[in-house]
Amino acid sequence: MPGLLQLLTDKQLPTAHESDSAPEEAKIWFPSCLTAVEWDHVCTEGLYGMEIHLRQACCYDALQGLCHTLCVKTQMLLFKHANIRGQRDSGRSQDIIDGIHEHAKGWAECYQQNRAALLTLLGPGNWEKELQPLRNVDV
């Protein structure tokens, strides 16, 4: 974004080249990170729309990943109840199921972050009928 460096120096925020952290830890600035007034000064034409498409795609990817992970968890639970006997084997399979559950929680968090960014960009509207908030965060 062309005006981002000026905005960061005006607000006295650290820029990427000033921070000592690793590049993979640097903050990525999207239009959803800015206020509506700052969008006009910082963003180039079309960047706003690109982030909307990116966030929508990320939401759909996260929902697909969450659905797949929950199906795997369901199958693992059915297999465990049908075939696993004994404390040792049951504990081991429960550890695997718990790992799958954590993976599902990661997909849910990813969806929620991208949906929140969409809400910032688009505001309330018809898109919320399809990309609804998750009812149970603990999955």
Results as ranks from 00 to 15, higher is better:
Q132Y: 06
T44R: 11
T44C: 10
D20A: 11
I96G: 09
N126K: 10
H17P: 02
A104H: 01
A104K: 03
I97K: 00
E128T: 10
G99H: 03
G3M: 02
G86F: 06
G125Y: 02
G106Q: 11
N83D: 08
E130P: 02
L78P: 05
E128A: 01
E24F: 12
E102F: 04
I100F: 05
Q94L: 06
S90Y: 12
T74W: 05
Q75D: 01
W127M: 01
K11P: 00
N114W: 00
A36N: 04
I100R: 10
D20R: 10
L77D: 09
P23V: 07
G46E: 04
M50Y: 03
L47K: 07
K73C: 03
C58Y: 09
V137C: 00
M50A: 13
G99Q: 13
Q87S: 05
R88S: 11
R115M: 04
K27R: 14
A36G: 06
C67R: 08
L66C: 04
A36H: 14
L134I: 14
H17Y: 12
K27W: 08
F30Q: 12
A108R: 06
G65S: 11
Q12C: 05
G86S: 11
L131E: 00
L70D: 06
W107N: 01
K129L: 01
Y111G: 09
G99K: 15
Q12D: 06
Q113P: 03
H81M: 09
Q56L: 12
C43F: 13
I84N: 06
H17G: 02
L70H: 07
I96Y: 06
H17E: 13
C71M: 15
E25H: 09
S90N: 14
T120D: 03
K80R: 11
A116T: 07
Q132K: 14
A62D: 12
H68E: 10
E18G: 12
D95V: 05
H103G: 08
E24C: 15
G49V: 08
W127E: 00
G106Y: 07
K105C: 14
Y48M: 07
M76K: 00
G46K: 06
C110K: 08
V72R: 07
R135K: 10
Q75L: 15
L5R: 13
H101A: 07
F79D: 13
F30E: 04
G49C: 11
F30N: 03
C43H: 04
A62M: 03
E38H: 13
Q113H: 07
W29F: 10
P133T: 01
K73A: 04
G49E: 15
L134A: 06
P31C: 15
A104D: 00
E130T: 04
E38M: 15
T69A: 07
L8A: 15
I97A: 02
L7F: 06
S32K: 02
H17F: 11
L119S: 04
E45S: 12
T44Y: 06
C59D: 01
I84K: 08
E109D: 01
E38P: 09
G65D: 13
V37D: 04
A117V: 10
E18R: 01
G123W: 07
L118I: 04
